[in-house]
Design a binder for these strands. Structure first.
Lengths: 163, 163
DNA sequence: TCAAAACAATACTTTTTTGTACGGTTTAAA
DNA sequence: TTTAAACCGTACAAAAAAGTATTGTTTTGA
């Protein structure tokens, strides 16, 4: 339950692109400079973002990266998913079984599952509703919108509980 | 943003102990059997849980592990924290800076921080309010309580937003 | 008192992830 | 047409985490 370096850096670089005027691009060296990372490292996860369909590239001298869509159309989840591409393991609770058994020991009656399911659903809600555009609006606005999502979630949970 | 094996297995084993009648213990081989893990591996994180003050041990033949407190007094967060003890890196957003800079490039005006802060606060709320006891109540109850926490969170968020 | 079974602790191996290096291809411009 | 700067892609090295092995200490009970 913690953030991987790729997730953090990748999101930051995506935000850099989102902050550009429409149609402009940024080269890997420029991004690296702005984020204090190595050019090679930036190149690595920009490639992932490209494969994830978030980013378009311009090759050759004068080349660079730009978002494939408007920032408002790119939920954070898309960024995170793109960056997960080349991971060997991709775990959530109950995905992983023991080293010994073929299937989860508690395929029924798992004590952990409901907790995990609700929490992960909540996180997913957060990351699909918030877009790169939202992050650009500055701290106050982002803060308000994040809280707004929490609020709406509550409403939905409430319905489900009272039914 | 995914669950580490230690976190999942550790929590499961803690739940095993929580499910015992008051005062009874379970040995590492027994836990390992029930969860389909190796005895050595179980021993490893039971030691962490012990150091975290969650678990008491009985040495010698007939030895084993038991919870140091009533399951209702052990929030999931405590379990997770105990299991984090021997990690080398412990990252959240904005904890980690680039390899090059001494301090975070965006120590002010960070686009990512508010999103991350609210989400992590929410997760923390979840894990401090839910206890091992809750997980024992079975899927429906856990599910309801988890939703209940979501609900209360909303109320709190709402206050903050409208102020 | 001795043996068996269990916890304690650390060292070690393997796997995964992080981060770097480097050779190749593309393109703008002189 | 040549060169420089940038993307592309993979291979490689280093660090972290996962999981195992082993040795030692404690305790029960024959």
């Amino acid at each position: 339950m913690n953030v991987s370096p790729l997730e953090e850096y990748g999101l930051r670089c995506a935000v850099q692109l989102a902050s550009l005027p429409e149609g402009e691009s940024l080269s890997a060296p420029e991004i690296a400079e702005r984020e204090g990372l190595s050019v090679e490292y930036v190149s690595k996860f920009m490639l992932l973002l490209k494969r994830g369909g978030l980013v378009k590239t311009i090759r050759g001298i004068k080349g660079g990266f730009l978002l494939a869509k408007h920032p408002a159309e790119i939920p954070l989840k898309e960024v995170f998913d793109a960056l997960k591409q080349n991971r060997k393991t991709n775990r959530g609770f109950c995905d992983s079984f023991s080293g010994k058994s073929e299937t989860c020991v508690r395929s029924k009656g798992c004590a952990i599952r409901p907790f995990w399911q609700i929490l992960s659903r909540y996180i997913e809600e957060f990351t699909t509703r918030l877009t790169l555009q939202d992050l650009l609006q500055g701290e106050e606005v982002t803060s308000l919108k994040t809280r707004g999502i929490a609020l709406e979630n509550v409403a939905r949970f409430k319905e489900e509980v009272t039914v």
